[in-house]
Simulated assay, not measured.
Amino acid sequence: MIDISVKTLGTLARGLRVVEAIAEHQPIGLTDLSRVLDEDKSALQRTLATLHDAGWIRPLPDSPPRWEVSVKPLVVAGRALTSSPLPARARPLLGSLRDATGETAHLALVDQSTIAVVDVAEGKQIVRTALQVGQVHPPETSAAGRAICAQLAPDTRAALASDPAALLTDDEYTQIRTRGWSLCEGAVQPGSTSIGAAVLDSSGNPIGAVIVSGPDTRLTPDRYAEIGALVRDTAAELGGGRQH
């Protein structure tokens, strides 16, 4: 983590917390939002007015109004992902992985303690795994989380997890690291199986994961090794090929 030794802006931090809370609970009114954030109503009302004026939130035609997030965060996120080098390089690779496996392929990146989907190449089958950009993967049980945790030291792994007791054993993470891919059989989404591989930076640190997901009726155990190898190779190409 970079240490920036300057005084932070409390009003800006409050505004960001408000946007996040509205996104999680929308539509939500002032009274409920005040309760969720444990904030004073008058100060919160000024923050809402400022965010509305800047175009980040919008009121529903209720009285009193309830608030929801506008499309502006989506526009900003879309521009960021389009211009970010890693997702841009991943897009054609995800498409190729989707075509090779017949299943949905996606990229998830690590941001502090969150593993979030940043791009998806949806499978072309009528019945397929559906994911949304911004969806969060649990570190303990998801294929992405298990692949990433396998590349971390035990103490760092525990710090990433929201429920350290749900982590796999050290031997299981060693097995994932050795073969290069992880497995999730219905632990996150019943009836869906996912296979993931960590994307490593130039220093060998995990920065994300490439994942293939599909219904367990098609992504069956006899296909695990084949798809695992494809996912592993795609992640290695995206991360520069370094594995350990």
Rank of each mutant, 00 (worst) to 15 (best):
I2M: 06
I4H: 12
S5K: 04
S5I: 03
V6F: 11
V6W: 08
T8D: 05
T8M: 09
L9R: 12
L9E: 12
L9F: 04
L12Q: 06
L12V: 15
G15H: 15
V18F: 11
V19Q: 15
E20C: 14
A23G: 13
E24T: 14
I28F: 00
I28G: 01
G29C: 06
L30N: 02
S34G: 14
R35G: 01
V36P: 03
S42L: 04
T47A: 13
T47M: 02
L48S: 05
A49Q: 04
T50I: 03
L51C: 04
L51A: 07
D53H: 09
A54E: 03
I57T: 01
I57S: 03
R58Y: 01
L60E: 10
P61C: 02
D62V: 15
W67Q: 01
E68A: 08
S70C: 10
V71I: 12
V71G: 11
A77P: 00
A77H: 12
G78Q: 08
R79Q: 09
R79L: 10
T82K: 10
T82R: 13
T82F: 12
T82P: 02
S84N: 15
S84G: 07
P85W: 01
P85K: 14
L97T: 08
R98W: 01
R98D: 02
D99G: 05
G102M: 05
E103R: 00
T104W: 08
A105F: 03
L107R: 02
L107A: 13
V110T: 15
S113L: 10
T114E: 07
A121R: 05
G123M: 03
K124I: 08
I126E: 11
V127D: 13
V127G: 00
R128T: 09
A130T: 13
Q135P: 00
H137Q: 07
P139R: 00
P139N: 00
E140L: 01
T141G: 01
A143G: 05
G145C: 09
G145T: 13
R146H: 04
Q151M: 13
Q151K: 13
A153D: 08
D155W: 00
T156W: 01
A159Q: 14
A161Y: 12
S162R: 14
D163W: 00
D163H: 04
A166Q: 06
D170V: 10
D171K: 03
E172S: 12
E172Q: 15
Y173A: 13
Q175M: 07
Q175V: 08
T178I: 02
T178N: 10
W181N: 13
E185H: 06
V188S: 12
Q189I: 15
G196N: 03
V199L: 04
V199K: 05
D201A: 04
S202P: 02
S202Q: 06
S203F: 13
A209T: 04
S213N: 13
L219Q: 04
L219W: 13
T220Y: 01
P221G: 08
R223M: 11
R223D: 06
E226R: 12
A229M: 15
R232S: 08
D233K: 06
D233P: 03
T234C: 13
A235S: 11
E237H: 04
E237G: 06
G241W: 05
R242Q: 07
